[in-house]
């Protein structure tokens, strides 16, 4: 009786251990399958040709993804310029200025923003932002600017949540010390508390960059999807991102074209890994500071 109990315990421990291995296995498989299926295309096209090639015309055998890399960078940078100031200031408001009665409502709102599916954001962009940009700023509406605004909105909850917890983690005596020296509440918050939370806030921004660069559906619906290398002054023109190109062309791509799209996924994956690693490094630093 006791023996079977011990055996059962041992078996279940092994079962739990196996389940814990799944995430390791998953990451391993994802890396393996992406690299194995993506690298042959990169080899065939040539690394330099693939990453720095300015022309993407699979019909003619031109597989340069520079326009898409630059496109992803533009919309991400735009999203950061638009989303980060609003996000950080909203976080400051939530952590230090928000009246107690409003707080739960605001917090629920931010959570809801994080939960809204990207297709719904994309649709909103399509029916509201695209006509808005077309009519009041110019161009066809499907543009780098429109995608930046939409992504700026979409990364808000990420930045707000991470920044708010970073600000809340700042030791109270920073703030109290500043008050004791005669600074106002506002000055203490902006001069002492926020700077002390800067690593945590920066981690939030990095996470936001990851979200923006990986976002697919919403961008497809508003960015115009033209795989053309754009100059920084062509904000009102359409652009294609790495993610959008994969979804749009995978439906009919074959052979080398298909492999080149998977290779595009590999490039995206490497970008994301770099961003993730910098996020964990900065987060670790933030934890050590506070």
């Amino acid at each position: 009786m006791v023996g079977s109990g011990v055996l059962k315990e041992k078996i279940m421990k092994a079962v739990f251990f196996t389940t814990a291995c799944i995430s390791i296995l998953a990451v391993g498989l994802i890396c393996f399958f992406l690299f194995v299926n993506g690298t042959p295309a990169i080899k065939e096209i040539g690394v330099i040709q693939f990453i720095f090639g300015k022309v993407w015309r699979p019909g003619n055998g031109d597989y340069g993804i520079l326009p898409m890399i630059v496109g992803s960078l533009y919309v991400t940078a735009g999203a950061i310029i638009i989303g980060v100031p609003v996000g950080i200031l909203t976080a400051v408001f939530l952590a230090r200025f928000c009246p107690e009665k409003i707080y739960p409502v605001m917090k629920a709102g931010v959570e809801l923003m994080a939960g809204i599916p990207s297709v719904v954001y994309g649709f909103f962009g399509l029916v509201v932002l695209v006509p808005f940009v077309r009519n009041s700023i110019g161009g066809k509406g499907y543009s780098i600017l429109t995608a930046s605004i939409l992504l700026g909105i979409m990364i808000l909850p990420t930045i707000v949540n991470v920044s708010e917890s970073a600000i809340r983690a700042v030791p109270k005596n920073y703030y109290e010390g500043s008050l004791a020296l005669g600074a106002t509440h506002e000055r203490s918050v902006f001069r002492m508390v926020v700077p002390a939370a800067k690593s945590g806030i920066f981690a939030g921004v990095i996470l936001g960059i990851g979200r923006a660069i990986g976002e697919t559906m919403a961008v497809i619906m508003v960015a115009g999807n033209q795989p053309v290398l754009r100059a920084p002054n062509e904000l009102l023109k359409g652009v294609c991102t790495l993610t959008a190109n994969i979804v749009i062309e995978m439906g009919y791509a074959q052979d080398l074209h298909r492999q080149a799209l998977i290779a595009t996924g590999v490039v995206l994956f490497v970008f994301i890994l770099i961003i993730n690693i910098s996020f964990s490094l900065i987060k670790r630093k933030a934890v050590h500071e506070s």
Partner: peptide
């Protein structure tokens, strides 16, 4: 395990889609 779980959190859904399609 923690690190790989964190990595999984950051991977964009299109990359999951590609992996699912291949695997």
């Amino acid at each position: 395990v923690r690190m790989t779980a964190e990595t999984l959190t950051g991977i964009p859904s299109i990359v999951y889609g590609l992996f699912g399609m291949l695997f």
